[in-house]
């Protein structure tokens, strides 16, 4: 039985931090966009390929022929849009630990329950809601299992 989990994450006291958008986990998915709107796949691709921000290619490989060194610690992103639904991808981006507590995948949209976060980053998620939606929109375009994946 999968309980309906309501997440209302607000930050205690921190004036500089903004509250995370609320989301609902249902049947292993976050079905609704965190911003209420669809993301921009082109911006999402830039985030995924950018090593300081998205960090995705440190662990995953994907259809990025221009990026020479891609990690092999996690499944390839090729075909992820065919393997998973939008809501499943969104949940794994927001907090993959909700799917598998042992995952090494960082929670990209979570600020609580973390230890010794660098002071400048406390109370801040790795990506904001818009960036999450952009990445989700991009990953959904990766329908092709072969590399490089085809963008639509």
């Amino acid at each position: 039985m999968r309980a309906l989990v309501m997440f209302l994450a607000f930050l205690p006291g921190a004036a500089s931090a903004q509250a995370l958008a609320p989301y609902v986990i249902e049947h292993g998915e976050i079905r609704a966009s965190l911003t209420g709107k669809a993301g921009d796949p082109a911006r999402g691709r830039a985030i995924v390929g950018e090593r300081q921000k998205g960090l995705c290619l440190l662990c995953h490989s994907g259809p990025f022929p221009e990026e020479r060194f891609q990690g092999d610690l996690a499944p390839t992103l090729n075909g992820v849009g065919a393997r998973m639904s939008e809501g499943e991808i969104r949940l794994r981006m927001v907090d993959g630990g909700k799917v598998n507590p042992q995952t090494i995948m960082p929670a990209y949209y979570r600020v609580d329950g973390l230890t010794r976060v660098a002071p400048a980053l406390r109370g801040k998620p790795v990506l904001n809601a818009q960036e999450i939606e952009d990445v989700v929109a991009y990953l959904l375009t990766l329908k092709d299992g072969g590399a490089p994946g085809r963008m639509k």
Partner: peptide, 16 residues
């Protein structure tokens, strides 16, 4: 597990 990215030493250096 530590930091914004929430990794332990063991997750990389033992498990991976």
């Amino acid at each position: 597990r530590m930091g914004q990215l929430n990794f332990s030493c063991a997750q990389c250096h033992d498990e991976n």
